[in-house]
């Protein structure tokens, strides 16, 4: 819960990004990277400015950044994206929605089942039937 000044850290992270792009720019002919190098120079100056004068807005609550609900949601999001091409649209979507609802409402099995089924049907009709966008079939279906 204790506040910390993060703007200096942010400026250092931006400087690292600038350094990465700047280093990488030497792999290309100078005329190709002239504009990006101009942008990198401006960004670098802004980073220095932020580092020197971080201001009051540098104080944010550490706990607000990653909390349990956020971590669970992030895990589901990454898991859904990761499984989508391999397990397929139907199974991944159904299981993700059903499991996610159960995590937040342990007793809502029927509700979770119906919502999951509803989403699969809605997305299938909207995208595959009406718009002819074919989702990955995956291993099971």
């Amino acid at each position: 819960m204790f506040p910390i000044n993060v703007n200096r850290k942010v400026s250092l992270v931006f400087m690292a990004v600038v350094a990465l792009f700047f280093g990488y720019s030497f792999f290309y002919p100078p005329e190709v990277v002239a504009f990006p190098r101009f942008l990198l120079a401006v960004l670098f100056l802004l980073c220095i400015l932020l580092f020197i004068r971080p201001g009051d807005l540098g104080k944010i609550k550490v706990t607000a950044f990653l909390t349990r609900p956020k971590l669970i949601t992030a895990a589901f999001m990454v898991g859904y994206v990761a499984l989508f091409p391999f397990v397929g649209f139907f199974v991944t979507t159904f299981l993700t929605v059903f499991a996610y609802i159960l995590v937040f409402e342990r007793t809502a099995r029927l509700k979770g089942f119906l919502i999951a089924l509803g989403w699969v049907a809605l997305l299938y009709v909207a995208f595959q039937t009406l718009l002819f966008i074919w989702f990955p079939e995956g291993l099971l279906i």
């Binding site: 589901f76 859904y80 994206v81 989508f84 091409p85 649209f89 996610y100 919502i115 995208f127 989702f135």
Partner: peptide, 26 residues
């Protein structure tokens, strides 16, 4: 939580629908 999972589905499926490519989802 119903809103959150709905957005996750729509963003993933919507991004995939742009070109039918997982690259866009990533």
């Amino acid at each position: 939580h119903i809103l959150a999972i709905s957005i996750i589905l729509l963003t993933t499926v919507g991004s995939f629908a742009v070109r039918g490519s997982m690259t866009d989802v990533y």
